[in-house]
């Protein structure tokens, strides 16, 4: 919930303050949950994006005239720098909020909770399947690559050579994923997936009054802030 609020805020609000606040909240959550080490890759992953934003905005921001530096044919502008700084902060706040969500919420908890809140089991299953597919496909890709290399497929060398290598690598992945669908469907049906009764959820969810109140408050604050900003009643620096 914290993560979703900060993500929404960072996305909607402009200026300096909002993303900084969002980042502070994200930072506090990370520290509280003891995620430091696991969090680092996500921070690093945003770097390439940041660098490109800064380069493009600083040097190519349209209409900016307040030049602060000239490098060859490129002019760096103050407006560009400001915009780049704000955009970067927003992107980082948004991305890291989502990362916090991913790191703190086990898929099973998420799915059980969605279903408890009345989401249909088909919809929950689709979300779950989509999340689980990624690691499975990655593992499968590794095995496919191994078996084709074992048959002498050279994945190094010229571009043409590599392009020709794509079909043997992608083919078994797609065909395998498709044929898996049928088996999964049958296996689900065999376990009464489409039975009409409401399922009993066996996963206990730790949730107390303070947490519930916190969630409501956060949700409310998010909506108020967004509405205030959009309607112009609140101008953040």
């Amino acid at each position: 919930m914290i993560a979703l609020s900060t993500a929404a805020l960072a996305f909607v609000l402009r200026g300096w303050l909002a993303p900084i606040l969002a980042l502070i909240v994200v930072g506090a959550t990370v520290a509280r949950a003891g995620l430091g080490r696991a969090f680092l890759p996500f921070v690093l992953a945003t770097l390439p994006l940041l660098i490109s934003i800064v380069l493009i905005d600083v040097f190519l921001y349209p209409g900016a005239t307040d030049t602060i530096m000239v490098i060859g044919p490129l002019r760096a502008t103050g407006t560009g720098l400001t915009i780049a700084g704000q955009a970067s902060l927003r992107i980082v706040a948004f991305a890291l909020s989502v990362a916090v969500f991913a790191l703190t919420t086990p898929t099973d908890d998420l799915l059980a909770d969605l279903e408890r809140r009345g989401m249909g089991r088909r919809a929950t299953f689709i979300i779950g399947a989509a999340i689980q597919t990624i690691p499975r496909l990655a593992a499968r890709a590794g095995e496919v690559a191994d078996s084709q290399r074992a048959r002498g497929l050279n994945t190094e060398g010229s571009v043409w050579r590599r392009v020709r290598g794509v079909v043997p690598l992608v083919g078994p992945m797609i065909s395998g994923a498709l044929s898996e669908v049928e088996e999964r469907t049958l296996a689900l049906e065999a376990r009464a997936f489409s039975a009409p009764a409401r399922r009993a959820l066996l996963r206990p969810m730790p949730d107390d009054a303070a947490q519930r109140a916190g969630r409501w408050l956060l949700g409310l604050a998010t909506i108020v802030l967004i509405v205030a900003t959009i309607s112009g009643h609140l101008a953040l620096p």
Binding site: S147, Q148, A150, R151, P168, L169, G171, P172, G176
Partner: peptide, 13 residues
């Protein structure tokens, strides 16, 4: 030459 356990991880043609 190594033949893997699962043929579906290599058949593409």
């Amino acid at each position: 030459g190594l033949a893997f356990q699962d043929p579906d991880r290599q058949i593409f043609a």
